[in-house]
Each structure stands twice: as structure tokens, then as C-alpha cells.
């Protein structure tokens, strides 16, 4: 599976994942309290410049940002008609700023760094017995590992429909996909336990 990380050596790449995530969260909160469309437009411009400094390229950036930007745009247009131009402008600039900053953090942080940071953040939860911190990385790895297998299985089920002249329907596709996939859970779990990967159990 491709990730949205982009190789590079910019200042953002060198900052630790924790600093970037904290900065993103704080900016997100601060943006809620700024209500001047003019100030928010400047913030969006600054975020745009920061994102541009990563040199991801216009085409690639458009592909990445389009889906989120379109929802922001549609909601802003909706706000313009049902509410006011002021409301529409604050929504547009506030969320665009946040989107650009979030996309910049995503593009400059590797999956490994994110997982290390999340594992570290989960340590206090581990102490109160809520999660096992090491399970987080393991589960993320498991999902990425088995997405292609589930996709292969989905195609096989579609082919089986075609071979028997059946029209594929959500129900007749989803049910065998779920049962076949979940049935492998026992063996995968046994393999994890047999290798002693999660320690005692």
C-alpha cells in the first residue's frame, strides 16, 4: 500500500513527529478562536506557503488535497447561500488552513515515526491496563499485511459470481468475504501465539 509520506529533508521532515502533532493540535484549537476572515485568510496563505515549501508538485498536491478541499468548498458555498458571506469565508479559510497543515505533517512523517509516537503515548494507558502499547504497531502491521489478501479474496468471489452467471450484489459479496476472511483469524492468532510475539497469555 502506498503511503502519503514524501521523501525529503526539509525543516518539517527533521522535526519530531511529536512536535508536529502537538503544533497541529494547538493550531487547530487556535483557529477556532480566530473569527476575522482577513486573519484566517492570512493563516491559510501562510499554511499554503509552508505546504508549497515541501515541493510536492501541483498535480500530486491537487490529487491529495482535492477530496477534502471539495467538501470544504461545497460547505462554504452552502454557508454563503443559507448564512452569510462572512460565515462562508471563515469556514473556507479556517478549514483550508487546517487541511494544509495536516497534509504537510502527513507528508513529512513516516509511518514508523507515527507508530513510535502513538506507542509512546499509549504507555500511560498500558499502565492502567487499557491497552498493550506494543499491540498498536502489531495491529497496524496486520491490517496492512491483510488488505491485499482481502482484495484478492473479493476478486475471487466476484469471479465466482460471474462464473455462475450471478449478478454481484452487496449482500452476496459481503457475506462470503467476511466469513472467509474471519475464518483465517484462528490460524493467524495461533501463529502469533506460537511465536511468542505478544509475550505471556
Amino acid at each position: 500500500m502506498n503511503t502519503l509520506y514524501v521523501e525529503g529533508n526539509s525543516l518539517l521532515h527533521r522535526l519530531s513527529a511529536r512536535v508536529k502533532l502537538l503544533a497541529l493540535a494547538l493550531t487547530g484549537i487556535a483557529l477556532i478562536f480566530i473569527i476575522s476572515p482577513f486573519a484566517l485568510a492570512i493563516a491559510a496563505l501562510a499554511a499554503g506557503l509552508l505546504y508549497a515549501s515541501l515541493r510536492i508538485g501541483w498535480r500530486q498536491s491537487w490529487l491529495r488535497l482535492r477530496p477534502v478541499f471539495l467538501t470544504i468548498f461545497v460547505v462554504a458555498v452552502f454557508a454563503f447561500f443559507v448564512s452569510s458571506a462572512h460565515e462562508a469565508a471563515t469556514t473556507l479559510f479556517r478549514l483550508t488552513t487546517l487541511m494544509l497543515l495536516a497534509a504537510a505533517a502527513t507528508a513529512t512523517t513516516t509511518i514508523g515515526d507515527f507508530i513510535d509516537e502513538i506507542t509512546l503515548a499509549a504507555r500511560p494507558l498500558e499502565r492502567i491496563g487499557l491497552v498493550k502499547a506494543a499491540d498498536i504497531g502489531l495491529s497496524v502491521g496486520l491490517v496492512i499485511r491483510f488488505v491485499p489478501e482481502v482484495m484478492t479474496r473479493y476478486r475471487a468471489i466476484r469471479e465466482a459470481h460471474a462464473a455462475r452467471g450471478l449478478k454481484p450484489r452487496p449482500l452476496t459479496l459481503a457475506v462470503p468475504l467476511i466469513i472467509l476472511t474471519l475464518k483465517s483469524a484462528d490460524e493467524i492468532a495461533a501463529a502469533i501465539d506460537a511465536r511468542g510475539i505478544r509475550g505471556q497469555n
Binding site: 496486520l142 499485511r145 490460524e187 493467524i188 501463529a191 511465536r195 509475550g199
Partner: peptide
């Protein structure tokens, strides 16, 4: 389990991380 390794019927379900070397390293973490 440290004494007895186990290879299951379906090797597909035995490799649990996406990249092979990461998967092999996993058993050594302990």
C-alpha cells in the same frame, strides 16, 4: 514456545507483517 517452533498448514496466515524482514524481526523483539 521458546523450545518448540510451529509451522502451520497455511503459510499465508503465518507471515503477519507486510514486509518479510520486519516479520522475521518481530519474533526477536522479546
Amino acid at each position: 514456545r521458546a523450545q518448540v517452533g510451529f509451522i502451520f498448514q497455511n503459510p499465508q496466515n503465518q507471515i503477519i507483517l507486510p514486509i518479510l524482514k520486519e516479520d522475521i524481526a518481530l519474533g526477536l523483539k522479546a
